[in-house]
């Protein structure tokens, strides 16, 4: 699925310009990060692609069709996990298939498969409060994937995790992405996270929120966070950020 963000502007009723004439094209199957400081509108842009937030001007299309509201084809993973606390891990993962009419046996199989994919097959019967932050986010990713979206939207999904868990989750996410071949749009404020994960990094700036520069990351995968090439790209991005 391709995503086309064309001249999108968002002005809140307070007069605050959250986004000004933003253009981004996202090709099918690519991993794209929206990177920037708080207030640059990266989460607003993601929420507009998800269909949660209306745009003031411009056009957002997915595969040539205007985004009119939220849809199951654009699955979202939230920083605060957003798991349903009354459902066990496996029932959370089976939620999408259940409301979309998938039969009991089939959705159970589906949920088990995706729980296994994120390594939580032994925690299927636990409620969210019994899981650690990293485990909750794994369930949340499994839940989004089990609903078979064509695009995965991720809003600072690892922002609440400690540094170590965060790196593990980044590795796991890339493994899953390699298996699932989905378009991923990933919001982060961490330069190294964006460089480690993405095919393209959309660097954004605040006041007003806009696209500053788009970096193509050509480093071979799997990437080495301590390699010279990695550091060079991080340096480029930092220079571009400080330039302002």
């Amino acid at each position: 699925m391709t995503v086309a963000v064309d001249n999108v502007t968002k002005i809140y009723t307070s007069g605050m310009v959250a986004l000004e004439r933003v253009c981004v094209d996202i090709e099918d199957g690519t991993f794209v990060s929206l990177l920037g400081p708080s207030g640059c509108g990266k989460s607003t842009l993601l929420n507009m692609i998800a269909g949660f937030v209306d745009k003031t001007e411009g056009r957002i299309q997915v595969d040539g069709v205007d985004v009119a509201g939220p849809s199951g084809e654009r699955g979202m993973v939230f920083q605060e996990y957003a798991l349903f606390p009354w459902l066990t891990a496996i029932d959370n993962v089976a939620f999408g298939p259940r409301i979309n009419g998938v039969g009991r046996d089939e959705r159970r199989e589906l949920a088990e498969r995706y729980l296994r994919m994120v390594g939580l097959q032994d925690h299927a019967k636990k409620y969210p409060y019994e899981l650690s932050g990293g485990m909750k986010q794994r369930v949340s990713i499994a839940r989004a994937l089990a609903n078979k979206p064509s695009i995965l939207l991720m809003d600072e999904p690892f922002g609440a995790l400690d540094a170590h868990t965060r790196e593990i989750m980044q590795d796991e996410l890339l493994e899953i992405w390699a298996q699932e071949k989905k378009t991923v749009i990933f919001v982060t404020h961490s330069v190294s996270e964006a460089v480690f994960l993405s095919d393209r990094v959309v660097l954004m700036e605040a006041n007003p929120g806009r696209v500053e520069h788009i970096f193509d990351i050509d480093l071979p995968r799997p990437r080495d966070r301590s390699s010279d090439g990695f550091a060079a790209i991080e340096r480029d991005i930092h220079r571009r950020m400080r330039h302002r």
Partner: peptide
């Protein structure tokens, strides 16, 4: 929102 993004 989570439910909406699963097509609810």
């Amino acid at each position: 929102r989570a439910a909406q993004s699963m097509g609810a």
